[in-house]
């Protein structure tokens, strides 16, 4: 992992000489080196930290959804929360006829997008939590989440349809995800929002283990089903909402990391799985970020291209090799 962090800092579309990179932490630098220094500190460092936080959170959120729904296909986006974020951003970028009246163009670029995504994601999370309170059955809740996702997607489709070409393009680019959208100045808030949710998730290892056996057995082992369901949706939804707001919807990591963890650690015990998905989520996110910026591509590739293009065959290979998969 450390190696990946170093590579993430060292490699990019502007090549920084290795000697400079190695002497990076020496204070005495000449003019030429300050440019490189700037690239590393202001661009690659926040990007690396963002990848670490996002990878850990998405892996964990995916595991929480798979355990809650006892479904290997569940992921952080299953309840429509990332679609909600997309809706917020779509409204901002393509509903611009209205929004540009209120927002300055600089706000449209950076923080404005975070806020819009944030609002959209939390709106959907709120709807899902309301539904969770009314519906007792997890399968019904899952379907409600997916339906909300569809409904939101169709609104986005409509916005795409009426939007101007430039706006649609901007939205599509956002939808491809990026770890590079978080500035150093925003990093602290990002971490402060995410870390408590990560920590609270660690406290649910024992009840999550009981949930593997199904609702009836879990309840018979003394688990308060209502409470744990509420906690899992809230934590997973919160993590997904924050991450999507800052990086755009990141595909694949949240769905695949729990499977990687189960296959590699040969365990379904959450006392091992939770640290494992956090670790593997970080590794996968850093590796994808690195691949996206390898100098052999002319440009920096969107992160979702990498996660799905390289990740999917890897997971298929592992599944075929293991011949079994579960939640």
């Amino acid at each position: 992992m450390l190696v990946l962090v170093l590579f993430n800092l060292a490699i990019g579309s502007v090549s920084v000489p290795l000697s400079v990179f190695l002497h990076f932490f020496d204070a005495h630098t000449v003019d030429n080196e300050t440019v490189w220094r700037h690239i590393i500190l202001e661009s690659r460092l926040p990007q690396t930290v963002t990848a670490i936080i996002a990878g850990a959170s998405l892996g964990l959120a995916g595991l929480q959804m798979q355990t809650l729904f006892r479904n290997p296909l569940a992921g952080p986006s299953i309840l429509g929360i990332s679609s909600g974020a997309s809706l917020g951003v779509a409204l901002l970028t393509m509903g611009s006829g209205v929004s540009s009246l209120f927002l300055s163009s600089s706000l449209m670029d950076g923080i404005g997008i975070h806020i819009a995504a944030f609002a959209g994601a939390f709106l959907i999370l709120f709807i899902v939590l309301l539904a969770a309170k009314r519906v007792r059955n997890n399968a019904s809740l899952l379907i409600i989440g997916i339906m909300v996702g569809y409904a939101v997607s169709s609104i986005i489709g409509l916005l795409n349809f009426v939007g101007q070409q430039g706006e649609v393009h901007a939205f599509v680019i956002w939808g491809l995800g990026s770890f590079a959208n978080v500035q150093n100045s925003q990093l602290l808030l990002f971490a402060i929002l995410v870390l408590p949710a990560l920590f609270l998730s660690l406290l649910l290892m024992k009840p999550m283990n009981a949930m593997l056996l199904g609702d009836a057995y879990a309840q018979n082992l003394g688990i308060n089903l209502k409470q744990i369901r509420w906690q899992l949706i809230l934590l997973s939804g919160f993590l997904t909402a924050i991450i999507t707001a800052y990086t755009g919807p990141i595909a694949f990591i949240g769905l695949a990391t729990p499977h990687l963890a189960r296959l590699l650690f040969k365990s379904s015990d959450h006392r091992q799985l939770i640290p494992a998905v956090i670790l593997l989520g970080i590794v996968v996110a850093l590796a994808c970020n690195l691949l996206a910026r390898l100098p052999l591509f002319q440009n920096v590739l969107p992160i979702n291209v990498i996660t799905s293009l390289f990740g999917a065959p890897l997971v298929i290979y592992l599944i075929v090799k293991q011949k079994q998969i579960g939640f």
Partner: peptide, 28 residues
């Protein structure tokens, strides 16, 4: 129960140990 349990990687000893849930500490 008759409900099927479809958890991969759940060893028989781990399953039996789940019976101790009501008695174990916070971390299980």
């Amino acid at each position: 129960l008759t409900d099927s349990i479809q958890v991969p990687n759940l060893k028989v000893r781990e399953l039996v140990a789940m019976g101790r849930f009501p008695y174990t500490n916070f971390w299980g």
